[in-house]
Design a protein around this nucleic acid. Structure first.
Length: 365
DNA sequence: CACGCGTGGAA
DNA sequence: TTTCCAAGCGT
């Protein structure tokens, strides 16, 4: 790598010692990360040798905006239930949602199945290799396309997730807003430089994310354990505590949910399927009355399920990133099943796609 | 483009 | 306890 010949060097940095540069040599950064990853990589169930395209696809969709520890819990049962892209494509959607239960962001489950179906229909059942082909598939955006192209097929493509943005902002000591689209483009340019400079782009991509997840963490980065601490501009400048700046906070709105538990003589409960859009789309639940302002009264609940009497059984709060969902569970008897409300045994309910609060309501905490 | 979409571990 | 936010995507 020519020292003064690369366009990413800032003029002011040329000629200074490596540790003083704002933008370190990509080849040195990539090499150090790859050597570190060779021995520091966590043993994750989808990290087979070589990487398997289908397992990687499933793990990447599960990992979107989700911590790896959560994904590890769900991955093996999901693969056992849907061992191949063909099995996933052919499965009932309810089975996919059931296997996804508890992971959150349930739209991903349906997008993953749509993706599997598109791979079977348009790619002869093989995961495509190029970012353009990958991005054309449901559920696959910039990050996931780059991740599969690089990690599975070892192509020199950038895979920019939240970890990678944070690592690169620090490596370059760049005080840019973490969640701005312009920052993502900036990070993508630098990630591509590293991918091109790497011996194995796949190992480099995983190493960058792994570093962000385990060493270059948001709060207090473990710089003493970092393989590129000597190449890090934020470390040199003492700004690892302030770069990146905290993300903007979002407002939390309140939603009131009155859910009705109505068991028949055989202990079967009334359940209904949620709409295809919005929160917990397509999942099953006890019949639930939602309102953003006022709480439902006993009269509201009686009319809602057609029961003679109702009583409050339990109350609890469920917090999501953007909402506080206040659940009030009512117990009733004699409510009628109908076109959209059916009776299911607890064993049957356990096989449906349901949210965590509904699991608590229907199957106990 | 800004927003909606879940969950739970860590600080 | 409260706050933050994670291997993002689609609209």
């Amino acid at each position: 790598m020519g020292r003064g010949s690369c366009g990413y060097h800032r003029l002011v940095a040329v000629g200074k010692p490596q540790t003083m540069r704002d933008s370190p040599d990509p080849a040195r950064v990539a090499g150090a990360l790859e050597r570190w990853f060779a021995h520091a990589a966590r043993d994750l169930p989808w990290r087979t040798t070589p990487r398997d395209p289908y397992r990687s696809l499933v793990s990447e969709l599960m990992a979107q905006q989700t911590q790896i520890a959560r994904v590890v819990e769900k991955f093996a049962p999901f693969i056992d239930r849907f061992p191949t892209v063909h099995a996933l494509a052919a499965a009932p959607e309810d089975d996919v949602l059931a296997a996804w239960s508890g992971l959150g962001y349930y739209r991903r489950a349906r997008l993953l199945q749509a993706c599997a179906r598109a791979i079977v229909a348009d790619h002869a059942g093989r995961v495509p290799e190029t970012p353009a082909e990958l991005k054309a598939l449901p559920g696959i955006g910039d990050y996931t396309a780059g991740a599969i192209a690089s990690i599975v097929f070892d192509r020199p493509e950038p895979a920019v997730d939240g970890n990678v943005v944070r690592v690169l902002l620090r490596v370059h000591n760049a005080d840019l807003p973490q969640d701005a689209p312009s920052t993502k483009r900036w990070a993508t340019d630098h990630a591509r430089e590293l991918a091109v400079a790497a011996e194995s782009p796949g190992a480099l991509a995983e190493a960058l994310m792994e570093l962000g997840a385990t060493v270059c963490t948001p709060g207090s980065p473990k710089c003493d354990a970092c393989p590129i601490t000597d190449l890090c501009a934020a470390r040199a400048a003492g700004t690892t505590g302030t770069i990146p700046a905290p993300k903007a906070r979002t407002n939390v709105s309140v939603l009131h949910c009155a859910s009705v538990l109505d068991a028949d003589a055989r202990g079967r409960l009334l359940v209904e399927r949620r709409p295809d859009t919005g929160m917990w789309a397509g999942l099953w639940q006890a019949p639930t009355l939602e309102s953003s302002d006022t709480e439902a009264t006993a009269g509201d609940v009686r009319a809602f399920v057609g029961a003679g009497s109702v009583e409050i059984a339990e109350e609890f709060d469920h917090k999501t990133t953007h909402r506080l969902v206040r659940f009030r569970v009512w117990r009733s008897s004699g409510a009628r099943a109908g076109r959209s409300r059916v009776r299911r045994s607890p064993a049957q309910i356990a096989q449906l796609g349901i949210s965590n609060p509904q699991r608590r309501i229907l199957l106990g905490g």
